[in-house]
Design a protein around this nucleic acid. Structure first.
Lengths: 361, 361
DNA sequence: CCCCTGAATGAAAGCGCTTTAACTTCCTCT
DNA sequence: AGAGGAAGTTAAAGCGCTTTCATTCAGGGG
């Protein structure tokens, strides 16, 4: 089971003892010169460094962490790294961690809570000091229990827990949450559509229980209300996220009714699916139908047409997560940070066809 | 400098000694029961496991690695994780590593050799047993030296080096290379265009010195030759990779000449840029111009029109890299593996407009 | 001239774990 | 019945490093 590797790791490594001997000092002095934890006269240090270089000495991070009581390591956990949005968040975390000399490991769960738990456990063993869980979830009982467990478990090993784009089930829990202001973003982009003259707007991609999406739906409804529309004017299709979902739901919706002139998608990927479904139905965007997305993934401007969407600076989210976690240790428990977003106008929105004479406000 | 973290890691962790005491056995027995490295009677094991659970024991991975002489850890190094192709490769590595119970860390270099070196060094300290460098490069002297250095350095710490999509400068070097057969792929997709009747095909996105791109250019030329066209029929624009490069180069090319009916792009991102430049010039794809890409990134089917391209199973590349490295330790040095690709036909290719009467073969 | 202070250094303890070598038992075989 | 194992268990060694504590040596003030 283990023998699929003919131990190449068995080569003996140079230890600090050998460096010390070659430099003619004790291990203690060598250690101090190498790690810089304690001042050492320049001449001595030079001698040690020289010896280390000559011998190609490589410090053993494990020994260091063992005696030093841990190490600077952060972990990001996402559903999948191939999702453009998650990849950007992970990159932000990695970058911010690297800036501080921290090591960063990323874990992909594929959306499986089981793997998520295993990974958290692994990070406990590895001595991670920061675990960042990224991505929206539906907040059910199982989720609450899971997070409560993580928080307790990580706290007991002295690690900090950050929830990115997902809720803390209980303000008492020692976790930090950092996320975008989904409601404000959805309100703004829906307002953009309303300002262009649209009145019958559907929200495609709800996912009841998913706090991020629920917040976007709330923002969408709020915008409608702000423009004096009755609550019945809202129409939300709970098809969930992903290109496939958008493609199917949009296809079905178009078969059922044409009583709408614009759609706000739950995110850019469902917008991608919707765009295709609309094209397949022989309709044009934005001439016949306007559509907007959410997240502004890198390829959104290559959609057909280029997508008007809400820019959520994903990399900044990742950076903020580690920055805040490391800076505000006091506020970590129950602290909640909201990041702002803004609209990126491209070419997927036009005034509605029926009142084409209207000038956009 | 270090004080931006009020040591939450200082909480004392339960050690195996306490577990042993509670279970009424020695540390040795507890260790064996916990790690499974040595058979232990079921009753004893149960007692130990019970004690461990009661105490919420978390093994210290560092101590384990220290005494156990290393640990199962792989590292992938890419330019950036936000590139869809690299993300997929990384995901493949992560998945294959996870399947074997290995930990996987990913590093992003941003294309900076300096950071690449630092990361390799870090991995040596961390005791990684497998380092996978991903992504094409221009093979200059600096590159050769760098790789030779990595190979030697990693070998000295007993780690294996895998080059994914980039060349080993010297067959003697202890590195394994795993990559796609770029020449065959480019030959096939160019052949597809030729079969559709195209004769004046430009290659957009060459990058002299970059071995992957050079191979694609070679495949493109080979396909032309196979179809009886003279060498002068080849036209390659060395604009490099990326959407921006494709956008600019295509724009300029169109201003200069229209003496071509199809373009094969260096990769899908170049194709994305080209598509936009063509649309901006008021031309239609594929009616006026056919274009094909390379890699089949997840969003290629959402381009306008959906892109005909070469599918390079990126995740499989990542998986293969770790599988081969771990399976064929003998052949590791100087071993070279080529992975196959295939064409994905979508809607960006049609017969050339001038000989529209031709039926595609 | 001696004692005190501080800088430079070293010996040794020990981080938490695995593993070797030794030691009991308790059978089984002759 | 006694030798020879096998099986279960443990004490102790040590992985490579940092750090505490002790020691040495210079220099400066009383």
């Amino acid at each position: 089971m283990e023998n699929d590797m003919t131990e190449p790791g068995s080569r003996r490594r140079v230890t600090i003892r050998e460096v010390a001997e070659r430099a003619g000092v004790s291990m203690a002095t060598a250690s101090r010169a190498l790690s810089g934890n304690h001042p050492v006269p320049a001449a001595t240090r030079a001698r040690v460094l020289r010896a280390a270089r000559d011998l190609d000495y490589v410090a053993n991070a494990h020994a260091r962490a063992l005696v030093g009581g841990g190490r600077k390591m952060a972990a990001v956990v996402v559903r999948q790294v191939t999702s453009p949005f998650y990849a950007q968040v992970a990159e932000g975390v990695e970058a911010e961690a690297a800036d501080r000399g921290w090591l960063c490991v990323v874990g992909a769960t594929g959306g499986d809570p089981q793997r998520e738990m295993e990974f958290v456990q692994l990070m406990r063993e590895e001595g991670a000091r920061l675990v960042i869980l990224v991505g929206g979830v539906v907040e059910d009982e199982a989720y609450r229990e899971r997070v409560a467990h993580y928080a307790q478990a990580l706290d007991s090993t002295g690690a900090r827990l950050v929830l990115c784009g997902r809720p803390a089930p209980d303000p008492e829990i020692p976790a930090l949450v950092v996320e975008f202001d989904n409601e404000a973003g959805a309100r703004a982009i829906t307002g953009h559509l309303l300002s262009a003259g649209h009145r019958r707007i559907v929200f495609l991609g709800g996912l009841p229980g998913n706090t991020a999406l629920d917040a976007r739906v709330a923002g969408y409804r709020a915008a409608l209300a702000e423009h004096g529309l009755p609550p019945e004017a809202a129409r939300v299709v709970d098809c969930g996220l992903g290109r496939a979902a958008g493609l199917r739901a949009m296809g079905e919706l178009l078969k059922e009714t044409r009583e709408f002139t614009a759609v706000v998608a739950g995110d850019d990927m469902v917008a991608a699916g919707a765009l295709r479904a609309i094209a397949d139905a022989g309709l044009a965007v934005p001439a016949d139908l306007s559509v907007v997305g959410y997240n502004d993934i890198p390829l959104a401007e290559d959609f057909n047409p280029p997508l008007t969407t809400v820019r959520t600076p994903a990399e900044e989210l990742g950076r903020a997560a580690v920055r805040i976690a490391l800076r505000d240790p006091e506020h970590a428990a129950g602290s909640h940070h909201l990041l702002g977003t803004h609209i990126v106008v491209r070419r997927s929105v036009a005034p509605p066809p029926t009142d084409g004479g209207l000038t956009p406000v």
